[in-house]
Design a protein around this nucleic acid. Sequence first.
DNA 1: CTTAAATCGATAAAAAAATATCGATAATAA
DNA 2: TTATTATCGATATTTTTTTATCGATTTAAG
Lengths: 217, 217
Amino acid sequence: MAKVKVPKLPTVRRLPTYLYKLSEMRKAGVEIVATPELARYMNLGEIVIRKDLALTGVSGQPGVGYKVRELIDAIKRYLNWNNVSEAVLVGAGALGSALMGYEGFEEYGLRIIAAFDADPMKIGTEVRGRSVFDIDRLEELTRRLQVRMGIICVPADQAQDIADRMVAGGIKAIWNFANVSLKVPDDVIVQREVIAGGLAVLSVKMSRKLVEEDAQD
Amino acid sequence: MAKVKVPKLPTVRRLPTYLYKLSEMRKAGVEIVATPELARYMNLGEIVIRKDLALTGVSGQPGVGYKVRELIDAIKRYLNWNNVSEAVLVGAGALGSALMGYEGFEEYGLRIIAAFDADPMKIGTEVRGRSVFDIDRLEELTRRLQVRMGIICVPADQAQDIADRMVAGGIKAIWNFANVSLKVPDDVIVQREVIAGGLAVLSVKMSRKLVEEDAQD
DNA sequence: CTTAAATCGATAAAAAAATATCGATAATAA
DNA sequence: TTATTATCGATATTTTTTTATCGATTTAAG
């Protein structure tokens, strides 16, 4: 199968932020929202906002704006966040625990139902309400539970091995927080989260600003 | 001051991954690396690799490859990761603790020296070796410690307030893990990390694949 | 009813990023 | 030495993303 191409990547990344804002508005009883307000909130241009919202398929009303409720539904539908996806998480360390502790995921259609770790001190314990199983049972349990999504929170040098086991257990989508690019069969999707990448961008912005300031004097 | 523009954003985001691989190679005693090997490791095309490395200013030798050590130095220099930046972190919850527990940051020139929180249960305790101070002391301590970088790990609805206090305390660079776009003066840089954004991309890839599979039958 | 202000969305232009082409350089083997 | 293979990096092309322009629709005020 061909690689899965997602067009409008930046837009998709922004959708959760719209969703948060729109949910807050709905809670506050607001029914209509116009582009300029969202643009101010997002610190983006109005055109960007309209393009982003257009991707989800909603139409606004000229001179008026968009219906908040309609937007929320459209975004959730586009992301398929109406249906809950169950996932297993491997690596119950600091980051893994943090992800399990994040309640917002339920809102995003993600439910982490079990964790795995190699550390005997962790196996058998509970982290944020989920049991931590022996990593050696990953394949077996994943298959039995029919889970199709896996989250990798182990150090980089162990990530490929975990990915292989996940694939063996029938996992079709991997959310990878390790600092490596994983090799998986064509029918498995990987989304990588490179936290250090954000720090790299920040670092470059900082040094850029320094030289710009120098240049201005 | 004008907004800081960083060209080649995708390249910068990839640099930490090169850095990890190259460091491993150096540890293993490897002195020379050629594009094809890195391309396999990164799951990218060879041209991408050469463009990425060119950004840091290094020159490879045709027919041979690049010097591992030279590449490491060049990447670190480009990211300014040779010099340590001290940072304060606000929000000693699950994610905040995870970031403080990540030892790799030292390698990236980042040292988190103190944490802040509003929870009386946390104030006065230590998390991963750093004291947790009362959030009300953020401005004072930041100023006294001369810290220029702040990391925000609080819920979205509190993030702007924290950012304002950071700016008041003299912070010039903010790494923001909250799901909001912050408003700050022009001389302050913000880098936002939207974890949910990655999940959104993964979700779209998954539903895309489903429809593609449907179409193939 | 007419006019003005606000807003959407289609189309077009500009900028950035990904991808391809190809000549030049260096190591290795004949 | 010469031919072959491996590799780099400059240039060009294509694709994607961002930004701009402008007509059409709606509300509200005169």
